[in-house]
Structure formats: structure tokens, C-alpha cells
């Protein structure tokens, strides 16, 4: 049962994280309410992907300080699969190619793992087929793709579309989309945005990580954050994205000082 009094979907407090003893995240605070769409923008190397990896539980990174609270529960110690079962989804900036595992077999393993964690039986094969057809149609994914090896030989755009297809199958509570828009032409961008918008509801939240304002024309954010050097240095409404597009990031750096 969804907590009727749930105030925040995700609360991040003073999050520090490093890789190979190099500190990347230097104290992040973030609050996302159910139903909200937040965007994080920032220059390359500022730590956006690191933040999404740490939230998703990537064990390459060490969380040295701070809390990650997902639906009133501290999840810092949970394995990536446990975080997924709770309703967290990360669309990877660089989806991994896995030769020999077909998209459908992978998806079935994923959906059934989620169901198992919820104490449910495996989804019957015909239901699974129906769901796969429906969601792949929505994302205009060719049937042939589904029997191919996961991400292997997919173009950049196909990989991203495949990530959103997975998201649509799993219907997460919080979807983090890490540069899902890069590598997409305008038509593909619309298809992907449509997939994300279908997921939106008063109970679901989205965290968009992007370089470009253009995605935000289709998925309109409630809050825009600017991340520089492992910190969120400015937050504002959707107009902030336009301003960043126009003026770049340097003015914020100066403003900060």
C-alpha cells in the first residue's frame, strides 16, 4: 500500500561519495515529492552520473557520508536489485551490451524478479507477451529487436529507447533518466518523452539528468537544479533551464563566488 501521508519520494541529505578515494559528490541535498519532475543540469564531469549511480546502488562508488531516503526508508545499505524492487529505476547514460541474453528473456527475468520480491507469482507467459507488445509498440520498437541480444549492436538512440521500454515495463515509482535524450533525433526524442509522460502520475516521480533544454520542452520539470563540481549550486523553476541554455554555466560559478 502506498503511504497516503508520504511527503517525499526521495530525500537526499548531505551525500558524499567517492571512487578510488577521489571525492566526486561533495554534499548533495535533494528532495523530490511524489508526482514531481526534477531536472539536474550541469557541465560534463560535475558528478551527475555519479549521483544517479550512487542512488541506484552501484558498488563501484563508496558513499562516505549522508543519507538516501526512498519512501521513508534509508536505502544506502541495500543492494541494487533491492532498490529496484522498491521502485527505483535508472536509465543508464551508457546502457551495457550483453551478448547472448535476448531483450525478452532479460525483461522476463526482470519483471518476474520484481514480482517475486513482492511475493507474487511469475507473470503468465501470455500476459508477459501482451505487456511486451503493448510497451514496445508505445515506444515504436520493432519486434525484431526484442529477440536480439540486449543492447548488442544497438545504435545510441536504440539503446536509449530500450531503456525507456524497460522503464515502461517496470513502472517504477522513481525513474532517474541519465542523459536519455543524448543521441536521439527529434522524432525519437518525442517518442521517449511520450513514454516518460505516460508514466507520470501524482504518485510517480522523475529525475531527469540532461545537458540540453530541448528535452524539457517535452517533459516539463517542476524544479531545475544546477550541479557543479559535486554540489547542487542553484535550484529554480523550469525557466532556469532556458537561462542555462542561453548563458551557459559560467555565470553561476561567478554568482556562487
Amino acid at each position: 500500500m502506498r503511504d497516503a501521508y508520504l511527503k517525499y519520494m526521495l530525500t537526499i541529505k548531505n551525500l558524499h561519495a567517492s571512487i578510488e578515494d577521489k571525492e566526486i559528490l561533495k554534499g548533495i541535498d535533494l528532495e523530490i515529492k511524489p508526482g514531481e519532475v526534477h531536472a539536474i543540469m550541469g557541465p560534463n564531469g560535475s558528478g551527475k552520473s555519479t549521483l544517479s549511480s550512487v542512488i541506484a546502488g552501484n558498488e563501484d562508488f563508496e558513499q562516505t557520508e549522508g543519507e538516501i531516503i526512498f519512501e521513508n526508508e534509508e536505502i544506502s545499505e541495500l543492494a541494487p536489485e533491492e532498490r529496484a524492487h522498491k521502485g527505483l529505476f535508472l536509465s543508464f547514460q551508457y546502457p551495457v551490451e550483453i551478448p547472448g541474453v535476448s531483450v525478452t528473456n532479460f525483461m522476463r527475468a526482470s519483471v518476474n524478479a520484481h514480482r517475486k520480491a513482492q511475493g507474487k507469482e511469475d507473470m503468465p507467459a501470455n500476459e508477459m507477451l501482451k505487456l511486451i507488445r503493448e510497451k514496445s509498440k508505445m515506444l515504436e520498437i520493432d519486434r525484431k529487436f526484442l529477440s536480439r541480444s540486449l543492447n548488442q549492436g544497438f545504435s545510441g538512440g536504440e539503446k536509449k529507447r530500450n531503456e525507456i521500454f524497460q522503464m515502461a515495463m517496470l513502472e517504477p515509482k522513481l525513474a532517474i533518466l541519465d542523459e536519455t535524450d543524448s543521441g536521439l533525433d527529434i522524432d525519437a526524442l518525442k517518442v521517449v518523452a511520450n513514454g516518460v509522460n505516460k508514466l507520470r502520475s501524482k504518485d510517480n516521480s522523475v529525475l531527469l539528468i540532461t545537458h540540453y533544454q530541448r528535452l524539457l520542452n517535452y517533459i516539463v520539470p517542476d524544479v531545475v537544479h544546477v550541479m557543479i563540481d559535486g554540489k547542487i549550486v542553484k535550484s529554480g523553476g523550469k525557466e532556469l533551464a532556458l537561462e542555462l541554455e542561453e548563458r551557459g554555466y559560467d555565470w553561476i560559478k561567478t554568482e556562487k563566488v
Binding site: 546502488g57 563501484d60 529496484a84 550483453i98 541474453v101
Partner: peptide
């Protein structure tokens, strides 16, 4: 990296390892 990707999709570690081994051998 592949293992992490599968786990991020909710597939438990042991099963994810199995899938990768299967993929490795199967071709």
C-alpha cells in the same frame, strides 16, 4: 559492469551471474 546492469533491473546477483554465464557459453 554487466552484472550491475542486470541487478539494477531487479535481477538478484546469483540469477544475474547465471544469465551472464549462460550468455557466455551459449553462442
Amino acid at each position: 559492469i554487466a552484472l550491475h546492469y542486470l541487478r539494477s533491473r531487479g535481477i538478484p546477483k546469483k540469477e544475474a551471474q547465471g544469465l551472464l554465464m549462460y550468455a557466455f557459453a551459449n553462442n
